[in-house]
Each structure stands twice: as C-alpha cells, then as structure tokens.
Design a protein around this nucleic acid. Structure first.
Lengths: 200, 200
DNA sequence: CGGACTATAGTCAATATGGACTTTGCTTTA
DNA sequence: TAAAGCAAAGTCCATATTGACTATAGTCCG
C-alpha cells in the first residue's frame, strides 16, 4: 500500500528545481501568463539566469499547479488560437513559496559544478607548457564572455528593471574578473615551474 | 526502423556529464579501481569538485566501458569478498577522451545556474530593507563557506597533489571574495535607495 | 561465541530532463 | 490567392538522475 517514495519534498524545494521555480514564480509577478509566454521571456534573456527547456517548464508548471502555487484557468481561443490555452496566475501561496525559496537560495552556498573545478584539479598533472596553453585559451573564452555580459550593444533596460539588471551584471562581472585574475596567477605559477626552454 | 535518437553524442560529451566524466577518468589515472573505490574518493572530497550519486557513477562507468574509455575486468573475490567485483582501468582511448574533454571544458563558458542569479534579479523588487536583510544573511553564508574552503584544520595535501590543491583553492577563494565584494556594494546601493528610517 | 552495528558494493524504480516531433495559425510572395 | 515558410504552443518518449532498498562482510562488545 505505502508508496515507495512518500512524496517527500514539494518539487520546488529540490535543489535542482529551486532556481527554475524561483524564475517562474518571479516572472508571474508581472501578471498571469501562459506557458509559451514564460518560455519566450526566459529564452529572450539568453537563458542568462535560469535555463530550462520547454518540456521542463511545462512539467514544472503542472507541479506548481498541483501544489497550489499557481492557479490555472483555461483561456478559450483568444485571437482565434486553437482550442484553448492554459493561463497561469500566481496565488497567495505562490507568493509565500517564492519568498521562502528566495531566502533558502541565498542561505545555502550551492557550489557550482561546471566542470571547471575538476579541470583545474587535473590540469596540475600536465606538463606546465600544456597547462599554460590551456589557460591562455581559457582566457580568450572568459574575455569573450566578459564582453557579452558587460553588454555590448544591448539596449538599456527599462527603468523599472534597471536596478535588477545592474545588480546582476555587476555580480557576473565580479566573478568573471576574479577568474581572469586567477588565470593570470596560475599562468605565472606554471611558468615559474617550467623555466622557458632555451631557444634551441 | 530508424531509432528516434541516433546515438547522438558519446555520453561523456553531453554538458551535464562532462564534469563527472572528467572526474572519473582523472581519478583512474592513479590506477585501476572498482566502482565503490571511486565513489569513496569523490565523497571524501566533500563532493567539492563534481558531485554525483552512486547510481549515476555506476551508469557512467557502464557507458565509458561501452565507449571503450575504460577496460573492465572482473576481479574474483579478493580478500574473500562476495562473488566478484568489477575493476575499471583507463585505456589509451580513455586518456585521449580525457584530454579532449579538458580542452572542451576550458573552452566553453558554462554559465552557472545555482539560483543565485535568479535570486539577485528578483531581490531588486523587494523593499530595500528586506533586500538588505537578505544580503546580510547571505554574507554569513558566504563567510562560512570561505572558512571551509580556506581549509580550517584540513591536513595539508600530499606533496604530489599540492599544486592541484592550491590552484583549486585559490580559484574558489577568488570567486568567494568577488561575491563578498559584490554583497558589500549591493548593500550600500540598497541603503542609499532607502534612507534609514528616523528613529521613531 | 552470538547479536548488534557499521562499511562495502551495489541495484531498483520513481522522477526529472531534453531532443525531436506535431499541429495549428499567421505571413509572405509569387 | 495558393503554396511555402515560419512562429506559436505544446507533447512524446528516450535518457539521466537519485532516494530508497538489498545483501554480504567485517568488527566490536559483553
């Protein structure tokens, strides 16, 4: 009788889904929307913040509806669209969940596993010249990202979102510059480990 | 007839698995090991680098064996263990894959979605006093992490891994300090947006 | 010695994720 | 104005991930 898994956490608390849930609930504060609309907004942000694919988004919306965080209403063929579309609106419970999640997210240091950490560890076992070559390539990559983030030719955000945009950008830039500094230091460390070959 | 998905990428190239693959192949450079041994090493590192759960590890090892990156041999009951254990050894192909993956990982800027970015964006819509409170909590969290990473009471690493350890640590610390600097700046930004309430 | 407890070494099956596909409506453009 | 092409709005299902379980081997304590 007893199900194997006892419906442990409400889905939105699982670490893997917290970021996405935060994003969806946050966007719904602008007002009710249907799934595809949310999807487009997320994609338009270049998935800069949370990235997820369409099916994941729809599943998440279903779960949030089950948990009462959003209220679903069926909007019959607006503008002559096919059959119906489901429109999602934030509920009071949803707003509470959003705040809880915000607090939890900030309260946990979620170490980041982009593979870079692992790469760093094993790079140390390479011949220093190879490690330096890799680091120089890495620097190009990071510089390209920096240009992107520091907003080459992006239109300035509308004033009501200016604060958010500048906070996010300065955070991202801080991390990028920290990595650049580290790269410089690592290169010189490897360079001193392997004195430059005499120009044979 | 034609399968829906055409065996697209070798599993180890999928972004989600690259970090783990790198970790496993990297560890196997120390010599052949069986699954649980790898598992313990990863856990012992506090999942500091790539974290994965046991079943994921075993699945990955299976895939790597299929792709010829590791050679599996069955070790019959060493020390009277039950039936048999499978021992995984790195192959030449595995070594090549490792290097490719290392280069690919460093060559792509994989933005990190820990939820923090999302939280930052939406924090800006809060009353400044609330945002400041959240940021101060965050500072505690990050400081705790900093203490952990900067190695409170950890035994010094064996000399052959000292370089790796110090590179990894200085990278992690750089990111942490960048976040602390950002927090300080964000707090003062919110503070100036909301002048301190007169002491009623 | 016998039972209680922990570590070893995995497997099972419920959930989550995402590449590819589908279907319907809206614009061109010839 | 008909066919071509593209955007909207999802769904399907193969894979990936992981919480919970199993089962055997040592270890310690009385």
């Amino acid at each position: 009788m007893s199900p194997r898994r006892s419906k442990a956490l409400p889905a939105y608390r699982s670490a893997s889904q917290a970021a996405r849930t935060l994003m969806v609930l946050g966007l719904l504060q602008r007002g009710p929307m249907h799934g595809y609309e949310l999807y487009r907004i997320i994609v338009a942000h270049g998935a800069l913040y949370a990235d997820f694919k369409k099916p994941t988004l729809y599943h998440l919306l279903e779960r949030l509806a089950e948990d009462g965080a959003v209220k679903v209403t069926s909007e019959a063929g607006t503008r002559g669209r096919r059959g119906e579309r489901l429109v999602y609106a934030l509920t009071a419970a949803g707003r509470r969940i959003f705040m809880d999640l915000l607090r939890e997210t900030l309260g946990a240091y979620q170490p980041v596993h982009s593979g870079l950490d692992v790469a760093i560890v094993f790079m140390a076992r390479l011949p220093p010249a190879d490690a330096i070559a890799l680091l120089k390539t890495r620097r190009e990559t990071v510089l390209a990202r920096r240009a992107l983030v520091s907003g080459e030719g992006k239109p300035p955000p509308p004033p009501e979102r200016a604060t958010a945009a500048s906070l996010a950008a300065s955070h991202a830039l801080g991390l990028i510059d920290a990595e650049l500094a580290w790269i410089a230091q690592a290169i010189s460390q490897f360079a001193s480990a392997a004195p430059p070959p005499a120009h044979t």
